[in-house]
Amino acid sequence: MNKTELRDAVAEASGLSGADADRALNAVLDSITSALASGDKVTLPGFGTFETRDRAARQGRNPQTGESIEIAASTAPAFKPGAQLKQAVSKA
């Protein structure tokens, strides 16, 4: 499912127009992005938790040359599914 298909599903399930569903979906995604960028967690009970995780700097290897390279520390978004989501997916 891509973003357009998700927007259409939201519009159908909620009775909103496609444009209204698109604005609502964008608002939700922007809010999650903004919260993660400021270091907050976003918890949706039954669905899961969006959070950030810090990755330490480490040594890597260039697969083409075999040369050792330094991979910088970074912060990455992560998602931990909730129990209800896990259960729904495992039944599918």
Rank of each mutant, 00 (worst) to 15 (best):
F79R: 02
R7C: 09
A72R: 15
L6S: 02
T75N: 06
R53N: 05
G48D: 00
K41F: 10
P81M: 09
N2Y: 03
A13K: 12
V28K: 07
T43E: 15
K91W: 10
S34H: 09
A92E: 13
A37E: 13
N62C: 07
I69E: 10
E67I: 03
D30Q: 03
Q59N: 12
L6K: 01
K41W: 03
E67R: 10
T49K: 00
E70K: 14
S74F: 09
A57Q: 13
P81C: 08
L85R: 03
L44H: 08
L36H: 02
A13Y: 01
A72S: 14
K86R: 15
E51P: 02
L29G: 01
I71P: 13
A78M: 03
G15L: 03
S34Y: 02
L25T: 04
I69S: 07
G39F: 10
I71H: 07
I69Y: 05
G39R: 04
S90F: 10
A11F: 03
G82K: 04
A27Y: 02
T49G: 10
T65E: 06
V28W: 08
G60H: 06
L44C: 00
L29P: 01
A19D: 13
N62L: 08
E5C: 00
D30I: 04
N2I: 06
A19Q: 08
K86N: 15
P77K: 12
K41P: 07
V10A: 05
A24L: 12
A27D: 08
I32G: 00
T4V: 14
S68R: 10
S74H: 05
P63H: 02
A76T: 15
K86P: 01
A56L: 11
Q59G: 08
E12A: 15
N2F: 12
R55G: 13
L85N: 05
A11P: 09
A24Y: 04
V10M: 07
Q64C: 03
A9S: 10
L85E: 12
A37M: 07
D22C: 04
E67S: 11
L25V: 14
G15D: 11
D54K: 11
A57Y: 13
K91V: 12
A57I: 03
Q87H: 12
L36K: 07
R55N: 11
K80M: 03
G60T: 01
L25P: 00
A76H: 15
A19S: 14
G60Q: 07
K86C: 09
E51F: 05
A83P: 06
P77D: 09
A11Q: 05
L6H: 00
L36N: 04
P81Q: 13
E5Y: 11
P81D: 14
A27K: 02
T65D: 09
T65H: 01
N62W: 04
Q84A: 15
S68W: 12
K41S: 10
T33F: 01
